[in-house]
């Protein structure tokens, strides 16, 4: 880890350049005309629900899968025609840890290091360094089959980093991670983004994308719906707060929606059954008095008024009008009453 911090101008080259990628599995179109440009030094989050095509895109960019059409360049190399060159500059941590249970932690890392052609002594030194960094030094000489789930994930991540990849792919990296490992992962991501290295991660959680990434794209059913900086996304797609109003008399819901419509930063959604209205907003707290005033002026009684950070579901709702989990889990929007905006 060199401490040299590069100025931003050096990091202007496109690190990942995706043009019109399509991929189908039989009748299922996993990716539909995906275009993305990710600059060097970016922590990029691909945000979307299960089955939206995130893993398919990662597999194409890491040369594991061929696109049906379109092209993708990673670090300037074509992922199909120059797959071997792509592989030498990337690191991939898939959704499930891919570590050899029969080998020890140390042997796993040295093996991967050797396969990146680091040379015996470099691989050994680098393995030792990473075992320390990921809190695995004590378990270094134990077979991986004795490792806990969290330890396996850490080892998997260490293996991914062994050759100092300039582009790091992390497919749902925090799934199944204990809090300590999660913290370690965040440090890794932050360290990686220095020196013009790039991180491409996928996640189902808006909060996670917001915290880790400085560029986000939202994907659903194989299409990239929006992309931009975190701030741009919030501004276009429902703001940084979600205001939830429940009125006492649900018959008045259409009136209430009309009255509050223009306050919404994205699509206002009303639920006639429960009398609930959700309003995506920028700077939500400042709108609360206005909401109360307007409803009061129309004699609409408020049963509940709450602020919460928007979830991926809310962002989806405001972009597409359907929730991310609509088909998958039919999850209800849960009340998080009285929770402060972060």
């Amino acid at each position: 880890m060199s401490n040299a911090t590069n100025s931003n101008e050096v990091c202007q080259n496109a690190s990942i350049d995706i043009k019109g990628i399509n991929k189908s599995y039989g009748k299922l179109q996993a990716l539909n005309n995906v275009d993305l440009v990710i600059e060097q030094g970016t922590v990029f989050a691909l945000l979307g629900p299960n089955g939206s095509g995130k893993t398919t895109l990662v597999r194409i960019l890491t040369t594991l899968l061929r696109p049906d059409s379109g092209s993708a360049h990673v670090a300037g190399y074509d992922v199909v025609r120059e797959a071997h060159s792509v592989r030498s500059v990337i690191g991939l941590a898939g959704q499930y840890p891919a570590v050899d249970e029969i080998l020890t932690g140390k042997e796993n890392l040295e093996m991967i290091g050797r396969l990146y052609h680091l040379g015996k002594s470099v691989a050994r030194a680098r393995a030792k360094e990473l075992l320390n960094r990921f809190d695995l030094a004590e378990a270094a000489n134990r077979q991986v089959k004795t490792f806990s789930g969290g330890m396996r994930r850490r080892l998997d991540l260490a293996a991914t980093l062994i050759a100092r990849p300039s582009i790091l792919f992390l497919d749902e990296p925090t799934t199944g991670l204990d809090p300590r490992s999660r913290l370690g992962l965040w440090e890794v991501i932050a360290a990686q983004a220095k020196d013009c290295n790039t991180v491409f991660l996928t996640t189902q959680y808006l909060e996670e994308a917001d915290r880790l990434a400085n560029k986000i794209a939202i994907i659903d059913k194989g299409r990239v719906l929006r992309q931009g900086t975190n701030q741009e996304l919030k501004e276009c797609c429902g703001g940084d707060t979600l205001i939830k109003v429940r009125i006492a008399d649900s018959n008045k819901i259409s009136k209430a929606s009309d009255v509050l419509e223009d306050l919404a930063a994205g699509k206002l959604v009303s639920y006639p059954d429960t009398g609930e209205i959700t309003i995506p907003a920028i700077n939500g707290p400042s709108l609360m008095p206005e909401i109360v005033r307007r409803l009061d002026a129309h004699n609409i009684i408020i049963a509940e008024l709450a602020l919460k950070p928007p979830t991926l579901d809310d962002v989806f709702l405001s972009i597409t009008g359907h929730t991310a989990l609509e088909n998958a889990e039919a999850k209800q929007n849960t009340h998080i009453t009285g929770r402060d905006d972060k």
Partner: peptide, 13 residues
């Protein structure tokens, strides 16, 4: 099944 082949396929070997 354990994902090792994908790991190896993503390496420059």
């Amino acid at each position: 099944a354990k994902g090792m082949i994908d790991r190896f396929r993503s390496l420059p070997i």
